[in-house]
Simulated scan of single mutants.
Amino acid sequence: MKKNPILQILMLFLSILAVSTATASAAETVSKYGTQKVVYHVNYDDAKKQSSTLRNIQNHINAVGAENLDIKVVMHGNGLSMLIKPEALKNLPKFKTANANQSMIQKIDQLKMLGVDFNVCANTVKGRQVDVARDLYDVETSHIVPSGVAELAYLQSKGYLYLRP
């Protein structure tokens, strides 16, 4: 079967147009939003609200591009419930909820793969007697900050925009 040269040229032109449009769109996004440093504040234990916050972060990345963002999530107080494993709740009488179920974990993992940092308040860990290794999902020593509130103030002083959805 013979290929039509006009059809081949048309397909090539459409392919080039599609690539250039996508490139122009990406460039427009960068020029509109630039690079951003953002800290998301989580100190509430409502699983739906926490999930919505993670969705907001994903939407933020989709709009601006992971390569143009430096995003940190700072959790303290009840916000730590986002990372508490459901089976750990029995060990933590100072928490009402443990929201690190499979759905939450998948969202967190996806955001971590895109470069989002999740930070945990040491005051909350100590004051609520949380065993980091046993009770929390995927938290290492490097993820723990001395004070959630102090970390928020510090990041804002370093140019991070504060969001609390």
Rank of each mutant, 00 (worst) to 15 (best):
88 A>E: 11
125 V>S: 03
14 L>F: 12
6 I>M: 10
72 K>C: 05
7 L>I: 13
128 R>W: 08
75 M>G: 03
156 Q>G: 14
127 G>S: 14
95 F>E: 04
51 S>D: 15
79 G>A: 05
102 Q>K: 00
146 P>D: 14
136 L>F: 04
164 R>Q: 14
66 A>P: 08
17 L>K: 00
28 E>W: 08
37 K>Q: 14
100 A>S: 12
22 A>I: 06
41 H>A: 02
23 T>M: 14
79 G>N: 05
78 N>A: 15
66 A>I: 04
13 F>L: 09
67 E>Y: 07
62 N>G: 04
126 K>E: 09
14 L>E: 06
151 E>T: 15
86 P>D: 03
6 I>W: 07
35 T>S: 14
37 K>E: 11
33 Y>T: 03
53 T>F: 06
129 Q>K: 10
65 G>E: 08
32 K>A: 04
101 N>Q: 03
64 V>M: 11
63 A>F: 07
128 R>G: 09
11 M>C: 10
15 S>A: 15
106 Q>F: 00
21 T>C: 07
86 P>I: 01
109 D>W: 00
102 Q>C: 00
153 A>N: 13
90 K>D: 13
150 A>F: 05
147 S>T: 13
141 T>M: 10
151 E>G: 10
61 I>H: 09
110 Q>G: 15
138 D>I: 06
103 S>Y: 00
39 V>E: 07
49 K>I: 10
124 T>I: 07
121 C>V: 07
62 N>R: 02
160 Y>H: 03
50 Q>Y: 10
76 H>R: 00
156 Q>K: 14
96 K>W: 04
51 S>T: 13
121 C>R: 02
135 D>F: 04
93 P>L: 09
97 T>A: 05
153 A>R: 06
98 A>D: 09
137 Y>C: 00
12 L>Q: 04
13 F>N: 01
149 V>Y: 07
87 E>F: 03
32 K>D: 02
124 T>H: 02
61 I>F: 09
